[in-house]
Amino acid sequence: MCELATPAETAKYLRTTVGKLANDRYLGVGPRYMKYGRSVLYPWDALRAFIDENTADSL
């Protein structure tokens, strides 16, 4: 079973704000998410993948 994070948990994990996450969803960028009714939820594995995909390689 996949664990899901709320926008508040996701914002804390990514060190950003809930508003930034909402704006990213509107723009179609940011981590993958799902909607369940009116709730927005983020799979933890999608958050880890988002971090891996957006980590810059050092020179």
Rank of each mutant, 00 (worst) to 15 (best):
A46F: 09
A8H: 09
L59M: 11
Y36D: 11
P43Q: 01
R32C: 08
L4E: 00
L27W: 10
L14W: 02
A22V: 11
Y33V: 02
G19M: 14
D57Y: 09
V18D: 13
R38G: 12
T10R: 00
Y33D: 00
Y42K: 01
M1Q: 08
T16D: 06
D24V: 00
A8N: 12
G30V: 04
Y36G: 05
T55W: 01
G19S: 14
L27C: 08
G30K: 01
Y42N: 02
D57G: 09
L21R: 06
V40T: 10
A56G: 04
W44C: 00
C2L: 12
L21E: 04
A22I: 12
I51G: 01
D24Q: 15
G19F: 11
Y26R: 15
V18R: 15
L59S: 13
L21K: 03
N23K: 15
W44I: 07
A46R: 03
L4R: 01
R25G: 06
T10C: 10
G30Q: 05
E9W: 00
R48Q: 11
E9L: 01
I51Q: 05
G30R: 02
V40Q: 03
Y42C: 03
A11H: 07
R38C: 08
M1T: 10
A8D: 12
L41S: 04
A5P: 02
N54V: 00
L14D: 02
G28E: 08
E53A: 12
V40L: 01
A22N: 15
Y42L: 04
A49Q: 15
A49I: 08
P43G: 00
D24C: 10
G28Q: 06
P31C: 05
T17F: 12
A5Y: 06
P7Y: 02
G30I: 01
G37A: 09
V40E: 04
R25F: 06
V29G: 02
A8M: 12
F50Y: 15
F50V: 04
V40K: 03
C2F: 11
Y13N: 10
D57M: 07
A56I: 11
G19H: 14
R48E: 12
M1I: 09
L41H: 07
A8V: 13
D24H: 13
W44N: 00
V40M: 02
D52E: 15
I51E: 05
L47K: 00
L47Y: 00
F50T: 03
A46M: 08
L59G: 14
E53C: 07
L14F: 03
A46L: 05
T17Q: 14
G30M: 05
R25C: 06
E53K: 10
Y36A: 13
R25L: 06
A46P: 02
A8I: 12
